[in-house]
Write a protein that binds this DNA or RNA. Structure first.
Length: 137
DNA sequence: GCCAACGTTGGC
DNA sequence: GCCAACGTTGGC
């Protein structure tokens, strides 16, 4: 199983919004970046991801799960853009901030730290384990 | 609100 | 196919 990180601005669509969607989850639409899309193409149903609040909070707040694999993005007619569905699994007992990630040597290569503008990122097994530790899981 | 980083677009 | 111009993201 692979791990990922999904970025969203809480003002637009935050963790609480995903939780409100329940088990059906929500389409991760609106991605217009090839790298991010390619990451979504690689996702399998059941993969887990960190839900990260960009701009406000700047912290990972919860764990979500890929509930549907890649399919066309319903918000555009452009066939290039596809997306997956995600659903909330559980909130993190302790949020893990960007600041913490930057301060943690084991996370120095994390895409979150190195490539701040990428909205859908892969997370390695090792990075996932460290984040879980910081989150109190 | 500013600006750096970076991706995309379009002229040549 | 290169590269300048432009747009967007996201941290600060």
């Amino acid at each position: 199983m692979a791990y990922w990180l999904f970025k969203s601005e809480p003002d637009v669509f935050g963790w609480d919004d995903l939780v409100a969607k329940g088990d059906r989850g929500e389409e991760w639409d609106g991605v217009r970046n090839y790298q991010a899309r390619n990451n979504m193409r690689a996702m399998k149903k059941g993969d887990l991801g960190l839900f990260y609040h960009s701009n406000q909070g700047k912290e990972a707040v919860g764990i979500c799960e890929v509930s549907a694999e890649i399919h066309p993005d319903s918000t555009t007619d452009d066939p290039r853009w596809e997306c997956v569905d995600v659903k909330a699994v559980k909130p993190l007992p302790r949020f893990v901030s960007l600041e913490q990630a930057k301060a943690e040597p084991r996370l120095k290569d994390m895409a979150l730290v190195k490539n701040t503008r990428l909205s859908v990122q892969p997370v390695s097994d090792e990075e996932w384990a460290v984040v879980m530790e910081l989150a109190g899981l």
